[in-house]
Each structure stands twice: as structure tokens, then as C-alpha cells.
């Protein structure tokens, strides 16, 4: 565990909590892509199956359980509890265009042809693109509430910090996880355009992110 990894995990947790509290407190999921949230729940489910097969640390187990619970709780808020506020007409990204190639690729390029490894690989690939329905929705409506942009900022920052963690681990431990690193780079690239808008617009005091 190094500082980049720890800050990355904290950033990831902050992002998920921001989103959950935003929906819970405002009793509305307006502007949030339910599809992205379902994909993230699927990411955690397929990645954390090792909760049943290997114990790494208390920290690892607790974080995995927290991520799983919060991701399903968020999906529950969007599709059941506050369903009437869900903007399904703007959430029109075709997720099968992500799921099919990601599933195919995880069968082709993995560390071991076993169910748990393939599902882990699937989760890594899927995570890198899971935010696309949300970004697509913002592009479509042309705006996002600032709280939603804070969520996206921390979610993007998390993987960027993991990149620093992988550079650190490569130099200190010789650790190199090719699948995670390549996917992590792809994932971070998707956020770059958003990071630029976040810094130039939201942090300058605009109450909303409006696209030019």
C-alpha cells in the first residue's frame, strides 16, 4: 500500500458516497445515468467474487463489501425508490455496444482461462468504459449539476491515482499488471475532456456545468 493507492481508494469511495448522498438527500436522480450505475454494480460483482475464494486483508474485504453495497443501493435508489425522477429519455446509450465487445475481449485476453479470471478481466475492461453512458447523457442534455461533476471528478481521479500507484509499484516491487494498466490508461483518457471542463468551468464558480 502506497500513498497513491490509498488516495485512489479514498477518492473512489468519496465519489460513490457523493453520488449516493446526492440522490438520497435530494430524493432525485435527475441527470444521473442509471445505465452507468448498473454497469458499475456489475463491475464490482464480477471483480469481487474473490471475496469467497481468497482473503487479502481486513481493509481489502471491508472496501469490497462497502463498494458492492453502495453500488447496489445506488441502483436501488435510481430504479426503484426514486424511479419517477429518473430521466430515461436522456439515458439512451446502448450498453450492449459496450458489453458485447468487453465480454468478447475478456475471453480472448486474460491471465488464465478460468471463470473467476475471465470475470475479473471482464470487470477491468468494463470499468474502463462504464462511465460512457453518463458522459453521453451529459453531452445529450448539454449540462450537469455541479454535484454530479464533483462525483465524476473523484471517479476519474481515482483511476489516475491508480496509474501513479502502478508506476510506483513497478519501480519498487517490479509489479506490473498489464490488463489493469492498459485499461486504467484508457479509462483515464475518457475523463480528460471532462477534467478540462471541470477545472475551467465548475471550479471557477459556475453552479452548473454547461457544454459550449
Amino acid at each position: 500500500m502506497n500513498v497513491f493507492r490509498l488516495l485512489g481508494d479514498v477518492s473512489h469511495l468519496v465519489a460513490i458516497i457523493i453520488l449516493f448522498l446526492k440522490i438520497f438527500r435530494s430524493k432525485s436522480c435527475a441527470g444521473i445515468s442509471g445505465k452507468s450505475q448498473v454497469l458499475f454494480a456489475l463491475v464490482f460483482t464480477t471483480r469481487y467474487l474473490d471475496l469467497f475464494t481468497s482473503f487479502i486483508s481486513i481493509y481489502n474485504t471491508v472496501m469490497k463489501v462497502v463498494f458492492l453495497v453502495l453500488s447496489y443501493a445506488t441502483v436501488y435508489l435510481i430504479y426503484l425508490r426514486f424511479r419517477s425522477s429518473y430521466d430515461s429519455e436522456s439515458d439512451t446509450f446502448r450498453v450492449e455496444f459496450l458489453l458485447v465487445p468487453v465480454a468478447g475481449l475478456s475471453f480472448l485476453e486474460n491471465y488464465d482461462f478460468t471463470p473467476i479470471e475471465i470475470l475479473w478481466t471482464f470487470s477491468i475492461y468494463l470499468e474502463s468504459v462504464a462511465i460512457l453512458p453518463q458522459l453521453f447523457m451529459i453531452t445529450k442534455t448539454g449540462e450537469a449539476e455541479s454535484i454530479t461533476t464533483h462525483y465524476l471528478f473523484f471517479l476519474g481521479l481515482y483511476r489516475a491515482l491508480y496509474l501513479a500507484n502502478w508506476v510506483w509499484r513497478y519501480h519498487t516491487e517490479g509489479f506490473f499488471d498489464q490488463i489493469a494498466v492498459v485499461s486504467g490508461v484508457v479509462q483515464t483518457i475518457f475523463y480528460c475532456d471532462f477534467f478540462y471542463l471541470y477545472v475551467t468551468k465548475v471550479l471557477k464558480g459556475n453552479s452548473k456545468l454547461t457544454l459550449p
Binding site: 493507492r5 481508494d9 473512489h12 471483480r47 474473490d50 481468497s54 487479502i56 486483508s57 481489502n60 472496501m63 469490497k64 463498494f67 491471465y111 488464465d112 479470471e117 475479473w120 491508480y162 500507484n165 517490479g174 509489479f175 506490473f176 499488471d177 498489464q178 490488463i179 489493469a180
Partner: peptide, 10 residues
């Protein structure tokens, strides 16, 4: 090493 098993990252 290449790859990671068991996975210690989240």
C-alpha cells in the same frame, strides 16, 4: 511478476 493473483487491488 506479470499479472496479479491473488488481486490485492480494488
Amino acid at each position: 511478476h506479470f499479472g496479479s493473483c491473488p488481486k490485492d487491488e480494488l
